[in-house]
Every structure is written in structure tokens, then in C-alpha cells.
């Protein structure tokens, strides 16, 4: 069969002996990330909620980055994009990333504007 599996993750830092053990390895990694997310979500350390970077709380940055990390490993190892041709991989990954980044940028910017109108524009909505 022509099923070549690339068996290393973390840019070759960790190389597994078989595809099965790679799957379990990725599972452990994803579980750890989820556990960290939940722990942070429950404790909400003041240091992370109090400080922000580019207008967003550090805690939320951490959540979003960890989510993207999880998404990467699900797509690359579970959906075996790692084993596909790079042209297919790029077509699948960059198309939605471009469109979603665009959509999110417009919508959040607009929402923030609407927020300021509600707040400062003499519109009474909380009566």
C-alpha cells in the first residue's frame, strides 16, 4: 500500500515508531492542552485577566493560541494532512484562513463601532 506516514511531530523533535503510537502521542498532547485550558478557565489567574495585549486579555490570547495548536494537530495527524501533497494541504488550509480572517476582522471592527455608538451616541437602550 502506498500509505507513507510521516511519523515525527514537533518539527522532528519527537519521532514515533508506528502510526498507532503517533496517534496515542497526539491524543496525550491534545488532552494536556484541554486540561490546561479548563484549569485556566476555572482559576482565571488575575495576572492573565488583568493584563492585555493588542486590546485583548492575555488569558484570551492563550485560549485562542492553544485552540489553533489543537486544530493544527487534529488536521495534521488525525485528518492526516501531514501525509498529503503540500499543494492540497495549502489549498485546504489557506483558503478558509484567508476568508475567516477577513470576515472576523470586518465583523469585530463593526461590532466595536456599534458598541461605541450605544455607549456614547445618546442612544438609550438600557432603560
Amino acid at each position: 500500500m502506498a500509505h507513507e506516514h510521516k511519523l515525527e511531530i514537533f518539527r522532528g523533535l519527537l519521532k514515533f515508531k508506528s502510526n498507532t503510537s503517533k496517534i496515542w502521542g497526539v491524543l496525550i498532547f491534545l488532552s494536556i492542552i484541554t486540561a490546561v485550558e479548563v484549569a485556566l478557565g476555572i482559576t482565571k489567574p488575575k495576572m492573565l485577566t488583568g493584563n492585555s495585549f493588542l486590546g485583548m486579555k492575555l488569558l484570551n490570547w492563550i485560549f485562542i493560541i492553544l485552540t489553533l495548536v489543537k486544530a493544527y494537530y487534529i488536521a495534521w495527524d488525525f485528518m492526516h494532512l501531514r501525509d498529503e501533497k503540500s499543494s492540497l494541504r495549502r489549498a485546504i488550509v489557506w483558503t478558509p484562513i484567508f476568508l475567516v480572517a477577513y470576515l472576523v476582522f470586518i465583523l469585530l471592527f463593526e461590532a466595536d463601532y456599534v458598541y461605541t455608538v450605544y455607549k456614547e451616541g445618546f442612544v438609550k437602550w438600557n432603560f
Binding site: V100, V104, L107, L108, E110, A111, V114
Partner: peptide
């Protein structure tokens, strides 16, 4: 994926608004 992104982006819109 784009459909779900639409939902989540709309959620973000409403959330940022309020």
C-alpha cells in the same frame, strides 16, 4: 468550515456589540 466560521463570527459580532 466557512458556515461554522460565519456562526462564530456572528457570535463575536454580537458579543463585541454588548
Amino acid at each position: 468550515a466557512l458556515t461554522f466560521s460565519g456562526f462564530l463570527a456572528a457570535y463575536g459580532f454580537s458579543r463585541f456589540k454588548f
